[in-house]
Amino acid sequence: MEQPRTALAERIAERRRGVGDPRALVGEMRRSVLLVPTAGGGLWSARSGGVRWVCGFTDEAALARFALLHSAGDRPMDYAALLGARIVDEVVPSLDEPAGLAVDIATEDGPMFFPPVVGIVPDGVAVDTDKAGEGRGHGR
């Protein structure tokens, strides 16, 4: 029997169908508890396109799909349960490089990315800020 989707997974599915409000999706991400794999004392992340992506999962099934591809054998994958707001407001700024949040990267329909832009991450670390010298995407 299939697990019911979380509210965030439902919002992601809406956006994939071309409906739903992008602001509501960001709001739901901020309110949702995400499961973030841990490795080597930190949160699991990947770099792509000049951005470091912290990887979070909407539920244990989504995390399990990821663990099948990235864990060592039958060893369970450790993870932290964090609010999306904490990831984008606290974790992302602490990384000292352009960083965002990638949700459900091992899901069949594909991941949802929350890039390091104004309205998702704090303005001071957004790569698209208009202030000269502000944001980590300028001049690097």
Score class of each variant (00 low, 15 high):
23 R>P: 02
93 P>D: 10
110 G>S: 06
127 V>E: 03
92 V>H: 01
55 C>P: 01
123 D>H: 12
134 E>P: 04
87 I>G: 03
57 F>I: 10
122 P>E: 13
25 L>A: 10
61 A>M: 07
83 L>A: 15
51 V>F: 11
48 S>F: 14
135 G>E: 03
90 E>F: 07
89 D>P: 11
86 R>Y: 13
13 A>E: 12
36 V>D: 06
29 M>W: 03
94 S>P: 05
74 D>M: 09
37 P>R: 09
125 V>D: 07
140 R>P: 01
25 L>V: 10
26 V>F: 03
38 T>L: 12
131 K>M: 05
127 V>N: 03
127 V>I: 15
67 A>D: 07
128 D>I: 02
16 R>I: 02
36 V>W: 06
123 D>R: 15
21 D>G: 08
122 P>S: 14
119 G>D: 02
30 R>F: 04
87 I>P: 03
41 G>Q: 11
66 F>D: 00
102 A>W: 01
11 R>K: 15
91 V>C: 06
31 R>Q: 14
22 P>K: 13
21 D>W: 06
3 Q>K: 07
116 P>H: 12
54 V>Y: 13
9 A>T: 02
21 D>R: 10
39 A>K: 08
123 D>F: 03
36 V>G: 05
28 E>D: 13
111 P>S: 12
38 T>F: 04
50 G>P: 01
14 E>G: 01
12 I>R: 04
84 G>N: 00
19 V>Q: 08
72 A>H: 06
36 V>Q: 02
5 R>F: 11
94 S>H: 09
114 F>N: 01
74 D>I: 04
72 A>Q: 11
112 M>C: 14
7 A>L: 10
85 A>W: 05
61 A>F: 04
40 G>D: 15
26 V>G: 00
109 D>F: 00
42 G>T: 14
4 P>F: 08
27 G>S: 12
49 G>A: 14
55 C>N: 13
44 W>E: 10
82 L>K: 10
135 G>H: 01
9 A>L: 00
9 A>F: 01
91 V>M: 07
126 A>H: 10
131 K>R: 12
123 D>Y: 05
116 P>S: 13
82 L>A: 08
77 M>E: 11
126 A>W: 08
65 R>G: 04
96 D>M: 14
106 A>H: 01
62 A>C: 07
21 D>C: 08
27 G>W: 04
55 C>W: 03
56 G>H: 08
93 P>V: 08
61 A>V: 10
46 A>T: 14
100 G>D: 11
45 S>Y: 03
6 T>V: 04
104 D>F: 00
119 G>N: 05
105 I>P: 06
39 A>W: 07
111 P>W: 00
113 F>K: 07
27 G>H: 03
136 R>Q: 09
85 A>S: 15
94 S>R: 09
135 G>A: 07
17 R>P: 01
104 D>H: 00
135 G>S: 04
127 V>L: 03
18 G>P: 09
52 R>I: 09
89 D>T: 07
33 V>L: 13
70 H>Y: 13
67 A>E: 13
133 G>W: 08
74 D>S: 15
102 A>E: 01
